[in-house]
Amino acid sequence: MNVFDILDRLVAFPSVAGRANGDIASWIEAHLAEQGAKVTLLPGPEGDRSNLFATIGPIDVSGYILSGHMDVVPAGEPQWSSAPFTLRREGERFYGRGTTDMKGFLAAALAAVPHLAGLRLARPIHLAFSYDEEIGCRGVPHLIARLPELCAKPLGVIVGEPSGMRAVRGHKGKAAARVIVKGRSGHSSRPDLGLNAIHAMADVLSAAVIEAERLRHGPFDTTFEPPYSSLQAGVIAGGQSVNIIPDTCALDLEARAIPRVDPASLLAPIKACAETVTAEGFQVEWMPISAYPALSLPQDAALAGLLHELTGEAPLAAVSYGTEAGLYQAAGFDAIICGPGDISRAHKPDEYILASELAACQRIIEALGARCSA
């Protein structure tokens, strides 16, 4: 199968994050097994979805991991010009949910496997495909925990998120959480008999706004835009009617941290403020939603040099979006981003990838194989 045929099969699986992924994982497992790869499915604790790890070449020698996620965001937008889970080609463009983010990379890696298998690799190339990346990188930590039993410590991890095949050395870390305030309902004419959860949440929201403004004053890292950590309130919901005292209010918060700053620590002042509301008789729940660390690969790292040679361009210092690469680095492995497509096309109707981008990605993976061959 060529890269386009493989992409067609992958897009046909509606592998939306948070749902069972046995169909796509099993298809990839069977496809790789046909090529002679050593494949392991790694069920997650949810019980209905799995990570996948495969090796081409020797297991007991250090090599490189090609990392990607099998899940996609939902495709319910009415603006799609065609069925989102059916690959559609128009000239050089291949339309479908996940074509850019990031089944295009998976397809290029899988299409390169027969070539890699024929090289008699002295150093292995591994494929690490995860689940539930789109809802907070929830699957890959379970895969990373199993790496010591699956392979020798890798020389580097290439995360194939869409970057226009330009390697990227860094991104910010992220933490998100939901705070729920529960009060007591009643008729709005008797506010003295109820506990207004929206009013109580006002203090929490105010704390978030104050903290967001404080972060604008540093610390700074000019690698990023903006060059400081940030915090925002993204969703707030509560109440039923203007004449009912609202008994529940929920607020979703997100923090993005420059390297060497713990993203979760940025939410701590808001959590502390929320806890003070309990003194007024309210109940408060704090629910972490997602978290991943920043990525910061040194400019002189061997992995950065390798990608410079393979792509012909010096790696970019950083991008604004986040990936699983920070989790690999936190586990002690050098990691870098490099994949086909443009992030601006992701998470929107008529997502697409170019045939030339898929071909370029496959060429670079095969060139990596040549570097690893005997």
Score class of each variant (00 low, 15 high):
F4N: 00
R9T: 15
R9A: 12
A12K: 06
S15W: 04
N21R: 05
H31E: 08
A33S: 10
P43E: 02
G47C: 11
G47F: 10
D48N: 13
D60E: 15
G63Y: 04
G68Q: 09
M70Y: 03
G76Q: 01
E77F: 08
P78R: 07
S82Q: 14
G91W: 15
F94K: 11
G96S: 11
R97V: 03
R97E: 05
G98H: 01
T100I: 05
G104M: 12
F105P: 01
L106K: 00
A107H: 05
A108M: 11
V113G: 02
V113L: 05
A117R: 11
L127F: 12
V140W: 01
L143N: 01
A145T: 07
P148C: 12
E149A: 14
P154C: 13
E161Q: 08
P162F: 07
P162A: 05
G164E: 13
G164L: 02
M165I: 01
M165W: 00
A167W: 04
G170S: 12
H171D: 14
K174P: 01
A175T: 12
R178F: 02
V179Q: 00
V179P: 01
K182M: 15
S185W: 05
R190Y: 15
A200L: 15
S206C: 14
S206T: 08
I210K: 11
R214S: 14
R216T: 14
H217W: 10
P219F: 10
P227R: 06
P227N: 06
A233C: 14
G234L: 08
G238A: 09
S241T: 09
C249M: 13
P259R: 10
P259N: 09
D262P: 06
S265G: 13
E275G: 07
Q283D: 15
M287H: 10
A291I: 11
D300N: 15
D300R: 12
L307Y: 03
H308R: 04
E309F: 00
L310V: 14
A318E: 08
Y321Q: 07
A330I: 03
F333L: 09
F333I: 12
D334Y: 08
I336T: 08
I337H: 00
G341V: 07
D342F: 04
I343T: 10
R345T: 14
R345Y: 13
K348V: 03
A359T: 12
R363C: 07
L368W: 07
C372A: 11
